[in-house]
Design a protein around this nucleic acid. Structure first.
Lengths: 218, 218
DNA sequence: AAGTGTGAAAAGTTTCACAGCG
DNA sequence: CGCTGTGAAACTTTTCACACTT
């Protein structure tokens, strides 16, 4: 989900006009392609990939066309080449360092989550108001006191942060992150963060997601 | 995020044509209204609510107009009444029972998460392939063996499920859930689930969300 | 024959602008 | 005057349809 604020952070670095939602889909395509590659598949058609990704085949073709001309008519797309292109478009620099703030229940679960590394992100440090108690959770990532946040971010040139602090602290911490140079925040607090237009916030609001599906049960 | 499949599960129960994205926003408005109510505010204008929710004022008015005529011109909206209307629209039956499958790292964190109850959902039971080891996490929700899943869902008429099992098991478990009568799934596995058109799947894909903001750092 | 690339239509959403009410 | 309710405009995203290539 993108941030609500009307004015988006323009579009990213170099790449031009890629529809916002296409960014998500490209990640999904990449995953599907990985699976195909593992199975030794060398070429895939838009309709096959569409079935795997749960979208329409035209959409696949449109999305891939944003990256350039990769397909061969009558045949399909080369799995490996296409994966590379998606990675180039999405995963700016490989192994982006990420910090996590708030090593409570959810924060610790995320620190243990293997999925991030697999996608090229490394959570290099966590910060908490009570690092001692967080340390008791036996995490593989060092947990520092939150007061050291700014110093670390500046020194390590961290641009991405995962925010898992209680709602009441979220805005204050976000301000500090931005001030220190963070450019994008994955926010798990159920709070609408206010940040400058050139900072991206992506809200993952668990209660809201549950409420949303609740609407669809009769 | 809604499910990819082109054909949505129609729109929900009784209520008519509420744009998909408006459903999310109504939840956010509800939260903002709660905060106002706590502060003793009785009336709020679209522009004030807009600022709190991080959206455009017209959007607020359009969204609220879907619920009926609640505003007073020159004044604004009555906070309490509006909250009630949003609850009625969104939270079909109060205290929907929910089950969670997969009490691993993430699953346990979600079981400890307080936000769900606050929004009117109660996680009544969890299921895991290894309930003994899950029990060691000292959760307040009973963790049963996954083999008892169907029986429980049928008996308790559960319609909502949170799915946190490893990717490889997700589709198989989803099939069982649907078979047993679950109508909506909040899916945390990085997998595109295939379900009948009348079942709603809402994917929360953590790695994908991180990848998404990664795109926006220069 | 199979399957891409793409312009054009359709659908969905957001914003504008303003009439009209309290 | 302030603020809602809403038709119409603007914009975004998805789907269709088909020419074109291998």
């Amino acid at each position: 989900m993108q941030t609500p604020p009307p004015d988006l952070p323009a579009h990213a670095p170099g790449k031009a006009d890629l529809p916002k939602k296409a960014i998500y889909r490209l990640s999904i395509y990449h995953r599907c392609l990985e699976k195909l590659a593992v199975n030794g598949v060398a070429t895939v058609s838009s309709s096959t990939l569409a079935r795997a990704a749960g979208v329409n085949a035209s959409q696949i073709r449109k999305d891939i066309a944003y990256l350039g001309q990769y397909g061969t008519r009558g045949l399909g797309y080369p799995v490996g080449t296409l994966m590379g292109s998606i990675r180039d478009t999405l995963g700016r620099e490989r192994f982006q360092p990420v910090v996590l703030i708030g090593a409570g229940n959810l924060g610790s679960a995320l620190l243990r989550y293997q999925g991030f590394e697999k996608e090229g992100f490394q959570v290099v440090a966590a910060f908490d108001a009570d690092p001692e108690s967080a340390a008791r959770r036996r995490l593989s990532v060092p947990v520092h006191h939150e007061s050291q946040l700014e110093e670390f971010i500046v020194r390590e040139k961290v641009k991405l942060a995962i925010l898992c602090v209680p709602a009441g602290f979220a805005q204050a911490v976000a301000n500090r992150l931005v001030e220190a140079g963070v450019q994008a925040i994955l926010n798990f607090s159920p709070v609408v963060l206010e940040v400058p237009a050139d900072v991206t916030v992506n809200n993952v609001d668990l209660a809201l997601e549950l409420e949303h599906i609740g609407y669809f049960v009769r």
